[in-house]
Design a protein around this nucleic acid. Structure first.
Length: 280
DNA sequence: CTCAGATCCTGTGCGC
DNA sequence: TGCGCACAGGATCTGA
């Protein structure tokens, strides 16, 4: 999926739709990760707010004083784009198209269908047990250190830990890879070997890179775009993600890739040596 | 509890 | 040009 910055950017992009009424809803009938909510009750409602928690977007609609709240998750390949109703045809993989009273259509497009469109009050399963927001004060080095050491010390790779939603939400493969590179920590380092100081560096980079990504309009994704036909904001500035075999931006030796929890993890063997003893 | 692997699905890009 | 395969932004579930 788009990672947290992309979801945040998508949220911001929806603001111009606020206070508009829904006049029409079309759906593809395909099952997403869950069967799509029956959206017929949204006709005639007014879009009043949009919030984000983790990578979930909550769209609120006013229906004669009652609030309906829709949860949208973009999965791996989802996006929400806005188009003039007269200009953009409904495409393959547009699974939900909402037409507003000013003629703008919102398209939920998701080729892989790993996303979700469900009513929020049916989403407890997904919303309980999710960790703190990465940009909140609750996500800090002490918190991570406590998690790692509170029971049996956690031995699995630090990368898998920071990508786990129970620990902290919104850190996907791209930003996990980038923040570990910036922190000079090998992605496979057993979590319990990291010192509090190293965790402070890591947490600092995770926050900084997410803030930066949100500032530039969100995206490090090749094909991510918001709204009309804008090209994505693909950042050539990724230092590690997707750069296997290319020179390390710091030392110029070729970067390598290993699999951690099934996902590519690019690192520099010189700048991020695997250390199997505590600290440096 | 922990953790590696499978899984949902389509599109893309590569080697042959 | 086409085929088969590996792999891709997530997150949950299963079984060892």
């Amino acid at each position: 999926m788009p990672e947290l910055p992309e979801v945040e950017t998508t949220k911001t992009s929806l603001m111009p739709l606020l206070n508009h009424r829904i006049v029409k809803i079309e759906t593809s009938g395909f099952r997403l990760r869950e069967p799509m909510a029956d959206l017929s009750s949204l006709i005639g409602t007014r879009f009043i707010d949009v919030k984000r928690r983790a990578k979930y977007l909550f769209l609120q609609f006013d229906k004669y004083g009652d609030t309906l709240e829709l949860l949208i998750h973009l999965g791996m390949s989802g996006s929400l784009g806005q188009y003039l109703a007269t200009t953009q045809p409904i495409r393959k993989h547009d699974h939900m198209v909402i037409t507003f009273d000013h003629g703008i259509r919102l398209h939920y497009h998701d080729p892989r269908r790993f996303g979700m469109i469900i009513w929020k009050n049916h989403a407890q399963k997904y919303l309980k047990n999710i960790g703190p927001e990465p940009l909140s004060d609750a996500f800090n080095a002490q918190y991570l250190y406590h998690i790692i050491h509170k029971n049996k010390p956690i031995t699995r790779p630090i990368k898998s830990l920071i990508m786990e939603q129970k620990i902290v939400v919104g850190v996907g493969n791209i930003y996990a890879t980038e923040s570990l590179f910036l922190s000079k920590i090998h992605p496979a380092t057993p979590s319990f070997l990291l010192t509090l100081e190293q965790l402070e560096i890591l947490v600092g980079h995770i926050k900084a890179i997410l803030v930066k990504a949100i500032e530039v309009g969100g995206s490090s994704l090749k094909d991510f775009s918001v709204g009309d036909n804008q090209t994505g904001y693909f950042q050539q500035t990724l230092l590690a993600y997707g750069r296997e075999g290319l020179p390390c931006p710091s030392c110029h030796l070729p970067m390598e890739s290993i699999k951690i929890v099934g996902r590519a993890s690019v690192f520099c063997p010189f700048c991020q040596p695997l250390k199997l003893t505590m600290g440096n």
